[in-house]
Design a protein around this nucleic acid. Structure first.
Lengths: 186, 186
DNA sequence: GTCTATAGGAAGATAGAC
DNA sequence: GTCTATCTTCCTATAGAC
């Protein structure tokens, strides 16, 4: 049992680790309790609806991460190339070099699908639009930007799956390196 | 409870459906029993080590599928372009137009990771080599073929995640269409 | 807020009759 | 091979004292 996590944000971060490692169904209350250092009762105090609330909070915090880390980059006056390069750095840190699974792929399985499927779809769509916006900024035709942003969204999640499946960060790293060219290159 | 499945192959196919829909941890014996029409005892008769054996059989059958459906294409005297086009058709059928999850991504989560992680890695590597072989046949330099086969492997799994996450077959279909060009195009 | 205790059920797995 | 019955363990969730 880890030391107790005091601020709610840190609690949710530790919950996220468990969900990302074990998936929704595999994340038992015992694992969630151990990871946070909080007893079952304390968890239910913070999250009255139990596991479902915890997963929801984790998903929301992941949304917040996007707003906090990605939006400022978008709104900066950097060039599109520079923006996408910073994006790549953020993604690299967020997914720990590709060894950390994405919640979105975990939450379209089994019970979680019914609970969070729509939120997952919405989030995927938002990320895709973000990529498309950068490509448009770089001067690509909106249709071409949409096509490329889908490719890049696919590449991101595929690279995570493959890197984790092979136990090798290489594929994810190579994807991030090629990302600017994939999105906007000729 | 579905009608009983007689031949072992069909039993394993039905087990696979459950694993693909619910993941390893989410696939409870009740679900597995209902899907096959076999009681618990019967399941343990066929699979003495329970769920672990069932998942193993499912993984093995998925390997067999590759050998039965993909190897003949590889060994045919079709052009590389024709081979990859047939590959795409097989993949489309196997993943039901992109709405069916891949076992490999499900088995690198939680408990399944420890049990099947190495087999998953081996299988990913084999698929990658298959793609690379076709690209080589098409005349690409081995290094370039390796690079492209990784991209295509990433694209395949990413397209599955995104299509399922969005509840839209479009991304997977577009990936399959672009597959020949991605692997061998200029 | 956190503790202990426990309900109530579902999980994986097994035994023995047929 | 399949059935019923059962075991043990684990699960989510709640109640009530502190």
């Amino acid at each position: 049992m880890a030391r107790p996590a005091a601020p709610r944000e840190e609690i949710v971060d530790r919950l996220a680790e468990v969900f990302r490692h074990h998936g929704y169904e595999g994340a038992s209350l015992k694992l969630l309790s151990d990871a946070t250092g909080l007893g079952r009762s304390s968890l239910y105090h913070y999250f009255p609806n139990g596991k479902q609330d915890m997963a929801s909070a984790v998903l929301e915090r992941s949304d917040d991460w996007g707003l906090e880390r990605l939006t400022p980059i978008m709104e900066s006056d950097a060039t599109p190339e520079e923006k996408i390069r910073r994006f790549a750095n953020e993604l690299d840190a967020f997914y720990r070099g590709g060894q950390q699974a994405c919640l979105l792929e975990l939450f379209v399985i089994g019970d979680a699908q019914a609970l969070f499927g729509e939120r997952v779809a919405a989030r995927l769509t938002r990320i895709k639009r973000l990529f498309a916006a950068i490509a448009c900024e770089a001067g690509l035709h909106p249709d071409e930007a949409a096509r490329r942003s889908e490719e890049v969204l696919i590449g991101l999640h595929g690279a995570l799956v493959v890197s984790r499946g092979l136990g090798d960060s290489g594929p994810f790293q190579r994807f991030l390196t090629a990302l600017p060219h994939r999105l906007m290159g000729t």
